[in-house]
Design a binder for these strands. Sequence first.
DNA 1: TATTGTTATACTCTATAACTATA
DNA 2: TATAGTTATAGAGTATAACAATA
Lengths: 171, 171
Amino acid sequence: MANSRDHNGAMNDPPPPAADRAVFDNPLDGLLGYQLRRASTAILADLAHSLADLRLRPTEASVVLLIAANPSITQSEIGRILGIQRANMAPIAAMLTERGVIDRSRADGRSHPLRLSEAGRALSGEIHARIATHEARFLRDLPPTERAALVATLRQVWNADGVGGRALSPR
Amino acid sequence: MANSRDHNGAMNDPPPPAADRAVFDNPLDGLLGYQLRRASTAILADLAHSLADLRLRPTEASVVLLIAANPSITQSEIGRILGIQRANMAPIAAMLTERGVIDRSRADGRSHPLRLSEAGRALSGEIHARIATHEARFLRDLPPTERAALVATLRQVWNADGVGGRALSPR
DNA sequence: TATTGTTATACTCTATAACTATA
DNA sequence: TATAGTTATAGAGTATAACAATA
């Protein structure tokens, strides 16, 4: 995966020709969308690897953490917060229930408040630990002040509904 | 990283509790991986929408731009640069050839240098224009100095092979 | 032996439509 | 009528294994 030798400190100077082997120009290198995709897939793959022996995928682990922080939250609410369709939450909730990670009370007849079981709380703690180690791998080369700024800027990028309040890509 | 109310270094404070409706805590909000995934999926969906009437998906458009910038590049080389498996490049190159976007010479017997056709160059120009507009939508709220810094920081995140030179998630 | 291109296949995430049962 | 949960299905990106042709 690592080929492009470039790090151009500031913007996008093309990398200096190497003379001994072919050098290619990557016109995507200065694009936010490209860098987001590459960074996101790299960190996601590493997270998947970090969680693999827990038999949890990143999405599933994120659901566990959200339930841990919000006992009695419903599937639909989780989906709205994490950007997961209701339809895609169903098999995740079913799997976590079947594994004994969550308890599904029945409050309403249609709403099912979700809570972690005892085992689920232990699992949640383990997920936290894995994620902390995982994140540190990617953040260790960034000055601490830049870390928070990066996260905050990213939050601003996808939460930007625009100055006029209109949403981007209103699917 | 637990679930405290979150630390955003400077920028977005969490929205003030509304008192009339339930407020949930998102323990993922301070995580780099989470913010990367949300930002990446948002911008990717917008890009897909921006390219839809060209009948190009983001990946395909990125291949066109890379060929435009590097005439005679091979499929394998494109894959190495963009992080696309050789196996996944094949149907993309076949489709672009069938549509008359690229010309495949046969240099080698096994290497096929790719070049844009006349129509391909026009398409490449259109892609550039679409992407410029698209990127501007997500960057317009960021001070210009922060834009380049953000892109450079993201590049650093996924290109960080670590201080010791070992690669992250070496699949 | 190594590389290019290819086919087949599978997994994850995402998306929509349609259904039920409740409210 | 609107919402919660579910099922079925499809699209897109990514991944591996295996093969033929070529170097």
